[in-house]
């Protein structure tokens, strides 16, 4: 008999957990289960057989947080692998601590990718202000393209941080709204939005000036801030020029002769409390 649980775009973990509990507690082998997202709508297995009634079962406590992450993964076979490891956990309670186990290693790698995706979303979401005239709460809007289905996992971070304003984060598949203190998600297909606001100029000024041209390390930058994020970052289009001019700027610093201290320097230094004379031996000019 083949079971074919279908996972929705929102609330995927809850649906996966209920199905996995029903199947695993009845000892259904992994090869008899075909996991798929609803949207994939393959007809080969259709809905599959009706799930058996769940019986009580326990899992190691590290399994739940890991499963929440892996459920959000877009990697092929993620939900299947998760189920296989769940089955093995029943007889090997410490399985998840054994990183030398190939399936555990694969599963933690999947979780790591999701965690990294979440981290990058925390870092690279950029809000633009869209407060309408007369509104008493400020409103902000952002467009972001995550690699995995992390919108629900990440929303709490933005709620804890930006609770005194209204905000909307739009991704290609989900729109997350925080409106007067209430969070909601909607599965909604959206096209990329090109957004900007006035404060971006100040931010770009900061970005350009906090850069030290004498220490160019382009690879280090790109490994942490891959190019795929650049199109939504207001500062990123400055990068090519900053790199191109770096060498010339350093050369110029080196070639410019030391300047004569401004007149007020001597006056100000003279007013400071006396210090041992020899200490100033190395004074320039």
């Amino acid at each position: 008999m083949i079971y074919a649980p279908r996972l929705p775009r929102l609330g995927v973990f809850d649906v996966w957990r209920d199905a996995a509990r029903a199947l695993a507690s009845n000892d259904v082998a992994a090869d008899s289960v075909n996991w798929a997202m609803e949207e994939a709508c393959d007809t080969l297995f259709g809905q599959g057989a009706a799930l058996p009634a769940a019986r009580a079962m326990t899992v190691p406590k590290e399994f739940i947080p890991l499963a929440k992450l892996v459920c959000a993964s877009r990697a092929t076979g993620a939900h299947d692998l998760l189920y296989r490891v769940l089955l093995r956990c029943r007889n090997t309670p410490h399985l998840l601590n054994n990183r030398a186990d190939p399936q555990v290693q694969q599963l933690t790698a999947l979780a790591k990718h999701v965690r990294r995706d979440m981290h990058k979303m925390k870092a690279f979401v950029r809000f633009r202000e869209v407060t309408p005239q007369g509104s008493n709460r400020r409103q902000f809007l952002s467009w972001f393209e995550p690699d995995h289905r992390i919108e629900e996992l990440i929303a709490g971070f933005f709620v804890r941080r930006f609770a005194d304003m209204d905000w909307v984060i739009v991704t290609p598949e989900v729109t997350t709204r925080f409106d007067c203190g209430t969070l909601s998600h909607e599965a909604l297909a959206s096209d990329r939005m090109a957004l900007s606001d006035d404060t971006e100029d100040l931010w770009r000024t900061y970005y350009a000036n906090t850069f030290n041209p004498a220490r160019l390390k382009i690879k280090a930058m790109q490994s942490e801030m891959p190019k795929k994020y650049w199109k939504n970052l207001p500062e990123a289009d400055l990068i090519p020029d900053m790199i191109a001019q770096a060498e010339a700027r350093v050369l110029q610093m080196q070639q410019t002769a030391p300047t004569v201290p401004p007149l007020r320097a001597a006056r100000i230094l003279g007013r400071l409390p006396a210090r041992p004379e020899q200490a100033r031996g190395q004074k320039p000019d």
């Binding site: 906090t210 850069f211 382009i218 690879k219 930058m221 942490e224 970052l233």
Partner: peptide
């Protein structure tokens, strides 16, 4: 902490 951007000197902002 979170690095919200990186400059071409490889440093985190």
């Amino acid at each position: 902490g979170i690095c919200h951007a990186y400059t071409p000197d490889g440093r985190c902002i």
